[in-house]
């Protein structure tokens, strides 16, 4: 296990954070005027833009009689990673991410309210430095709120990993790219912290069952912490009005 390298003898991580410390979160709602809802979210050096269109009439072939169709697209800018990507979307990883995004967001959206309709959620990763999926989920939640689409609770995603300190397991929250690349386990959880429900859980590499609970609880705690920050931003945004009216150019 590559554990010991992830924590210094002082118990600090490679980027100087404590094991239970999140990266800096900065966000803004209503970045664009054309989509019904949009949000920009930075978690450390991971930067994501999300846009929501809808609910609008669904295409005949897709339309469902009893619930809304949630359509997600995850795309990574070609310059988002250290090495240039050839395709922004359509590769296996982005398709998998789109499916996971849909899974997590469907758990929260009140789908029964809009039968025969469709909601489009587009996520664009501008810079990826670990936890791009989590940041995407969080940004999409903010965009859904900006669009005024009813959701049951905030869906928040967070990652956790496991390191060793003096022979004791120490879970790490909000894993950065360097820690991901070190080869340890990465557990991704998308949950609704206010209800405690888990919408999606995914893990890479292997983890002993004995430590699963500690890592999971650290990730869930991370979700709770992020929710507090995002909730504050949403409330501030709503207090100052929906979007700046001078942004719109009309003829």
């Amino acid at each position: 296990m590559p554990g010991p390298d992830l924590l210094s003898s002082q118990g600090l991580r490679l980027d100087g954070r404590r094991p239970n410390e999140l990266r800096r979160i900065q966000c803004k709602l209503g970045v664009f005027t054309q989509p019904d809802g949009s949000a920009y979210l930075e978690q450390g050096n991971t930067k994501v833009l999300a846009a929501v269109y809808g609910p609008h009439q669904a295409a005949k072939s897709k339309s469902l009689q009893d619930s809304v169709v949630v359509n997600c697209q995850y795309s990574m800018a070609t310059f988002s990673t250290g090495e240039r990507k050839n395709r922004p979307r359509g590769d296996r990883k982005s398709q998998e991410m789109s499916m996971h995004l849909r899974q997590a967001l469907m758990a929260a959206i009140k789908t029964e309210l809009y039968p025969r309709s469709q909601i489009d959620i587009y996520v664009e990763v501008l810079q990826a430095d670990g936890g791009a999926y989590c940041t995407s989920v969080n940004a999409a939640t903010l965009a859904l709120i900006d669009a005024g689409i009813p959701i049951k609770a905030y869906v928040i995603a967070c990652t956790a990993s496991l390191a060793w300190k003096d022979g004791e397991p120490e879970p790490l929250v909000d894993v950065s790219h360097v820690e991901e690349a070190a080869g340890g386990v990465v557990l991704t959880v998308a949950s609704m912290p206010s209800t405690g429900a888990i919408g999606l859980i995914e893990m890479s590499h292997r983890l002993h069952m004995d430590y699963f609970d500690t890592v999971l609880s650290r990730a869930m705690q991370g979700c709770k912490d992020i929710e507090v920050i995002l909730d504050k931003v949403v409330r501030e945004h709503l207090a100052e009005g929906w979007t700046k009216s001078d942004d719109a150019i009309t003829i």
Partner: peptide, 16 residues
């Protein structure tokens, strides 16, 4: 030069 039309701009840009 490489241009990428993000679906954020309009749903018509989704996919290809």
């Amino acid at each position: 030069f490489n241009v990428d039309c993000s679906a954020n701009a309009t749903p018509q840009f989704e996919g290809r």
